[in-house]
Design a protein around this nucleic acid. Sequence first.
DNA 1: GTCTATAGCTTGATAGAC
DNA 2: GTCTATCAAGCTATAGAC
Lengths: 183, 183
Amino acid sequence: MPELSAREKIIPSIARVFRRFGYEAASLSLLSRETGLVRSSLYHFFPGGKEQMAAAVLDLAERHVREVFMQALVTADAPGRQVDKFIAKLTEYYEGGAIGCLLSSLTLHDCPPAIGARVANLTEQWIAAIAAYLAARGDAAAKAQTKAERAIRLIEGGLVLALATREPRRFEASLQDLRELLA
Amino acid sequence: MPELSAREKIIPSIARVFRRFGYEAASLSLLSRETGLVRSSLYHFFPGGKEQMAAAVLDLAERHVREVFMQALVTADAPGRQVDKFIAKLTEYYEGGAIGCLLSSLTLHDCPPAIGARVANLTEQWIAAIAAYLAARGDAAAKAQTKAERAIRLIEGGLVLALATREPRRFEASLQDLRELLA
DNA sequence: GTCTATAGCTTGATAGAC
DNA sequence: GTCTATCAAGCTATAGAC
């Protein structure tokens, strides 16, 4: 377990603010409150300001998709339980449908072009990773791609519905559909 | 065709800004530019400011769901084409996946409690309306409810995916799944 | 690395002329 | 009904002490 730098330690807090408020509304005051650092201290770590903070958050999200979500699909505590583990990690990250997704948070509304491009890239990576898993399981390439896109839609649609109706259990229902899709 | 008041005429423009930018980031400057009215003129129509503008936009959206989307499910140009018409109206409203949904725009990020509550209510109305359609078609009540929630997830998830990857065609793919679900 | 202080702009909202 | 003018508060960002 490598020790985290002061900079790395605050990135999850920053990520939470972006997920909750989106790019524009994630003000430095909110980021300051959530990280426990005053505004100018944030500029010490991120001279590029908000945009650099968002970029750092996306770096972490990219690693999370690779090292947590996709890793769950290749290793599991019990044999044949990869999908269960994947879904457990999703539930954990999205707090059971109580908090939104970076991908939608940052791109549903306007954000700097560079950030939007990175979100698009990360989303494609995620789809490709799920498609690769399905292909390794025996699906034909085209079928795997279609199912992977459907999987992401299930996750994102379930989150939107859960947040809009304030019924987190609707995200859980979405994950049940996801379980069937990937099984 | 009832003639529209000056107030009613600008509401669609206001709606577009909220859909594009969300509640917080939909600034009066943006609303002013889109409607062609200066800020104080907007306050003439909406003394309650942004929150009242959002409420007016939700009133319109409620009517749209009832009078356009749900109406499509009960009347069609050709017999047995209700679902096709419904999907055509969705494509039109969401501009083929190029623009987001009010429901997600307003609630994915923070917004005044009254607005959040109204979005939750509108979402439930929409689910209930689709469930009622499915029940009238012969589905059992519980099955109709599950399928209706799945339908909304398909629409919302497809929009998020289309916007995040800047690939509007992914919304169209989502609507194909919706066609199968409702058929 | 963390802070105080401050600059300069944009925000939501109000007052009042026409 | 549309405008100009204005306000206090919030915003992003910078300078510089410790």
